[in-house]
Amino acid sequence: MATLKELVLRESPITGGHRACAGCGFPQIIRIVLMAAKDPVVVIAATGCLEVTTTIYPYSAWNVPFLHNAFENAAATASGVEAAYEALLRKGKLKGKINVVAFGGDGGTYDIGFQSLSGAMERGHNLLYVCYNNEGYMNTGVQRSGATPRGASTTTEPAGKVRQGKVRPRKDLTAIMAAHDLPYVAQASVGYYMDLLKKAEKAFSIEGPKFLNVLQPCRLGWPYKPELTFELGRLAVQTAIWPLYEVENGKWKLTMKPREKKPITEFMKHQDRFRHLFRPGNEELLADLQTEVDRNWQTLLEKCLPAGQAGGEGGSK
């Protein structure tokens, strides 16, 4: 694995000066994932903040070929690119390895782009799909998505007198992708860049369809102080709200176990989208959210146990 010192010497696939918000998390995701590739990359992106802020005429922040297609189509277009590349390789018209990488936000991945993603993964295209997941439609002004956590307030599921933000929990897309029986699926977070680098390097070394789900704090949609992006990315992991793990050929492995699991409020208290949960009367809901995170964490730990030990006492380890 490359060290951080080696990494900074490499040419960045994406330059600074783009128009992402101060404190935005996705430029780091792109940079780290693409710097992990030893071979040339082509990037296919869905509609979203990433596309909007990095490709404003007459500028581009990209040092690699970049194709933007409509919201629901990144994985489908990437499928075509990959299939054509394989054909050109077969005919000897192209030589050498090229990595096909697709980027989509959680809207373009969990919701509208889910069909094309599932199709691409099931067909087995040799590509890496990276979801930069900020848990909402932030580009259009903070609407809820399938990735928005329960209790979070958005403009289309706002907290008010009757409801306290989103009613249903987010869907577990990483697990859904793992259920596609892929060679490599992993969950990462902006705060743990070496973990992300390691996972991206591994993904690029594996043939077949790969999926990375990377949590990206959004200072506009979660709102928080922009200097907290890294901190929140780490707190999400330390509270087990967003555990870091990978699933390689069906084997689940935890890649970071917090030394001491923090209460979820440590993560939530910095963010306005959860502000209403701290008002009097919402104690029960907050406790319920904690129970939900604990239960999911326990389930994950059991999945990640070495073979033969799973399904034992079922108690905490």
Binding site: F71, D111, I112, T140, G141, Q143, G146, T155, T156, V162
Partner: peptide
């Protein structure tokens, strides 16, 4: 989007239903 956001606020108050779907 302001139409969806407006309906999300207005409809529940009068017993109506707003749903944000997964695509168009």
């Amino acid at each position: 989007t302001e139409i969806a956001e407006g309906m999300a606020k207005a409809l529940p108050r009068i017993g109506g239903t707003f749903i944000q779907m997964e695509d168009e």
